[in-house]
């Protein structure tokens, strides 16, 4: 399998990268980890005229807390997240997800920015971003803007990114006391795309759920933001009854399709199972102060 020909650019600044993207008017692609892009190019399902390799741009790979946010640079590798004590300790949902994305070798190349901006509803991080209420810093010809995760995913492989924009930083609100989160993925085999996945972020205070975020993987054209399910938890005592109700609401918005990873009815049911599991884990972690 051989990719088609393309121009290759390895700019050293974001502005330069944005300029090249603009010049190709939608016919250029950003090359970050390449673990999704290169296979589809080898299958000749994508034939961009140019690749803009952003890996030579300094200071795009980092995980740090700054201001009210956890900031993750776009070219941060999955395994950098898995190795990050900060992520492990304070944002366990990120390592829940990043540790089950593809396999360890792919995770050495695959980037957080790529997983989030590819727009594949079967990618694991978008649901986490929705649950966490994250936002994305995006650089374009007019400078930087931020896009909330909730309005980022428009359709399969279509995001709010303009062709000449690059996602540069993922911004996740810093956790407060009483926050807990988790990601549950059901897969046919280690390293496979998910059958389904559920991301949960909870904030508990005085044995009540104060706020919640729920994201769903692989049950729609994009990762889904299960808002009604999350809202149903607010004001409730964390526990099976509330979790079951939220899981049912999450199942209701799922739009799974039958494929090699299971029939639609199974996937919908599994959203319910995984939602309850993730809620229990998140709630336990909330109690633990994570």
């Amino acid at each position: 399998m051989i990719p088609p020909r393309f121009e290759y650019f390895a700019p050293s600044t974001l502005d330069e990268a944005v300029e090249i993207l603009g010049r190709y008017g939608g016919e250029a692609k950003v090359l970050a980890g390449g673990q999704s892009l290169l296979p589809v190019m080898k299958l000749r399902l994508a034939e961009p005229k140019a690749l803009v390799d952003i890996n030579r741009i300094p200071d795009l790979a980092y995980i740090r807390e700054d201001g009210g946010w956890l900031r993750i640079g776009a070219t941060t590798r999955m395994n950098d997240v898995n190795d990050s004590n900060l992520a492990k300790r304070r944002y366990p949902i990120l390592t829940d997800a990043a540790s089950v994305i593809a396999d360890p070798l792919v995770r050495n190349m695959g980037t957080v920015g790529g997983n989030i901006s590819h727009g594949d509803p079967a990618n694991d991080l978008p649901a986490c971003m929705l649950a966490l209420g994250a936002q994305f810093a995006v650089r374009g010809p007019k400078g930087t803007r931020t896009i909330p995760a909730a309005s980022f995913y428009l359709d399969t492989f279509t995001t709010a990114l303009e062709p000449d924009e690059i996602l540069t930083e993922i911004q996740i609100p810093k956790p407060r006391t009483g926050q807990g989160n988790a990601y549950e993925k059901l897969e046919k085999r280690a390293g496979d795309f998910p059958i389904v996945g559920v991301a949960i972020n909870l904030f508990e205070s005085g044995r009540k759920i104060e706020s919640a975020g729920i994201g769903l993987t692989a049950v729609g054209p994009t990762a889904l933001h299960a808002k009604a399910a999350a809202d149903s938890l607010v004001g409730q005592a964390p526990g099976d009854a509330a979790f079951r109700r939220a899981a049912e609401l999450a199942m209701q918005i799922a739009q799974p399709v039958s494929d090699l990873r299971g029939p639609a009815e199974y996937k919908r049911a599994m959203i319910g199972v995984l939602a309850q599991r993730a809620l229990r884990t998140a709630s336990k972690r909330a109690g633990g102060g994570a």
């Binding site: 290759y8 090359l31 390449g34 673990q35 290169l38 296979p39 690749l51 390799d53 360890p104 070798l105 792919v106 050495n108 190349m109």
Partner: peptide
Amino acid sequence: AVKSCTIL
């Protein structure tokens, strides 16, 4: 460790 068939 990386997969050299998916790297340019």
